[in-house]
Design a protein around this nucleic acid. Structure first.
Lengths: 340, 340
DNA sequence: GTCCATCGTACATAGTGTGTC
DNA sequence: GGACACACTATGTACGATGGA
């Protein structure tokens, strides 16, 4: 009834535990016949290598870590995280690795988690998202020599492989769509200022707008939550010369703002067009359904996972580039008021 | 630069590693003075016990496992799972435990995962959700003697502590609300037939309706997805004598069905009232906002986590009962057509 | 002398019971 | 008896040594 060890197998077969270890790991040094008997007894006893013992002797935890460092509120509401975790876990388990997951409510706890995981030899590497302004994580991980891959940065990073995203084309598509519908003043409700995404999107949307004659841009700050998005939208629409379309940096803010706008008598898309950066069920089920910039988060997370495994295995991994997002046009984008 | 071990500390202080171990674990057998020197050197070197070595010698992985056994589709869209994982992880980490997470696309893989985890001594116990009809999991876990807690069953289970939920009162509240609004024929779009939740809710709603004079009930089968919910709703509404309110077994089906209904010219709540079993942002942001049966999933998961830790620690844990859900009344419920 | 099968044992790290001064 | 060291536990991996053909 007790969980068997290789010693139990060795005793049952009548060989040394070294022979058992060799046989089970498919290495030389055992005859074909003995190997077969060992394997047979092993499966019959339901033996599996103790993860602790294997980790201790091989100096490999066969585990990678991810710290989700966002407010519980955002974690609960943003479908992104579950997709990320699901995509990653499937890849890892296919390669015999596990996922160690932690939540951190503040940056200090997050850094402390990496230190602890590494010192406890709990993980062989970590996967990071949401690069911040003055982000302390790359320096810490380099100092500790923790294999790490950064998911979704905009450009290479010294000493840490990145899976990078380029939002150049998607910003162009969005602005082109809106300009083609006659919009002349575009609103942009941004994410938290400390996230690098935010700066990048600001730049790309700004560039695309500047390259489009006759199109102006106004911005306001959101925080990815419903309330933050609604407040930013209200400020934009209350201005002297309000925008006729608004691009939201995530789906939650877009959806909440549409609901609020319609309560205030602003019709979507007749009075206001809406686009969401990030697609999810939210954008599909609300009415009007929201035009969104979609990409496959699960597949991207899986890709990052493979990079990290390669880095752990070989010590190096090449940067890679994520496929650009796709503009899914739904009902929330229409002609500018008085156009056409 | 290399990660320090207790031997490094012992060398630095000039004592044996046993002394270091005793000092670090706050046991007797070391003088106050030596203890302090050891602790000082330990923190200075940034020492942390190797999780593998500790697991090996203590026969404790300090980890609990959860297998999420739903389709990727449902996992992505249902906010329940992220809330569950987040609530659980926070409790576990507060007690020095980690969460091992896996996805399983089918029941066979799920069972295999428990076997593997246990044989590999990877987890000290597991937490289960979504009891099914003829569920093979309790028997397997009893056979393997894996400490396990079942989350959200309706009644006690032989040999496995459960955190049970009682939907008696919430079914009463829902039916009372609808009857009070003049509704006489209630629809119920159910979840997958193989889940025990489904049977329980069927029974409770059926009982509450039967106990309410003049109220009838019609049911149809959904599968927790958007498409499944919409199809079941269509069947109910196409019938000769369609219901005027529909209770949906989850938020996704409710929200998708409302969107579809309005496209077909069925106004909510004027023509059709809607209630969702499970609350989430979805119910809040759509218009009309959906009346829902809410409960704090994160807190419930944390509670189940504490039960499991107690079971692991002491070998026994008492069954506990979850607080009943609360009916959050929003805009999707109104008077029956022609009532009042 | 060579080759293969196999064994003994050290090692990875932390925890703990027993023995010694 | 207090303060410590030694030796052994947990399990799997891997090197070097040994035996026989």
């Amino acid at each position: 009834m007790k969980r068997p060890t290789i010693i139990d197998i060795a005793r049952a077969v009548g060989v040394s535990k070294a022979a058992v270890s060799y046989a089970l790991n498919g290495r030389g040094g055992v005859s074909q016949e003995t190997r077969e008997r060992i394997l047979e007894v092993a499966t019959q006893l339901g033996w599996r290598a103790s993860s602790a013992a294997r980790a201790l002797s091989s100096d490999r935890a066969a585990t990678v870590g991810v710290v989700l460092a966002r407010s519980p509120e955002v974690l609960r509401t943003e479908p992104f995280f579950m997709q990320f975790v699901a995509g990653l876990e499937q890849t890892l388990s296919a390669h015999g690795f596990s996922l160690q997951l932690a939540l951190a409510s503040d940056p200090v706890t997050e850094l402390e988690t990496y230190r602890r995981w590494w010192a406890e030899r709990r993980v062989d590497g970590v996967l990071l998202t949401d690069l911040r302004v003055d982000d302390p994580r790359p320096a810490l991980l380099r100092e500790l020599r923790v294999p790490a891959v950064f998911f979704g940065t905009e450009r290479p990073m010294a000493g840490i492989p990145v899976l990078w995203v380029d939002e150049h084309d998607i910003a162009d598509s969005a602005v082109a769509l809106l300009a083609g519908l006659g919009h002349r003043r575009i609103g942009h409700v941004q994410g938290p200022a400390q996230l690098r995404h935010t700066a990048r999107r600001e730049r790309e949307v700004g560039r695309a707008a500047a390259e489009t004659p006759g199109v102006g841009l106004v911005r306001d700050q959101g925080d990815y939550t419903e309330d933050g998005g609604v407040a930013a939208t209200a400020r934009l629409l209350d201005a002297a010369d309000p925008p006729t379309p608004i691009i939201f940096d995530n789906d939650v803010m877009a959806v909440a703002s549409v609901a609020r706008a319609e309560e205030l008598g602003v019709r979507v898309p007749a009075d206001l067009s809406v686009l969401a950066w990030d697609d999810s069920m939210l954008c599909r089920v609300v009415r009007p359904a929201i035009t969104a910039f979609s990409h496959d988060v699960g597949a991207a997370a899986a890709r990052a996972g493979v990079m990290l495994l390669e880095l752990i295995e070989t010590g190096v991994a090449d940067d890679a580039r994520l496929q650009q997002r796709e503009l899914i046009r739904r009902e929330s984008t229409g002609a500018a008021p008085g156009f056409g």
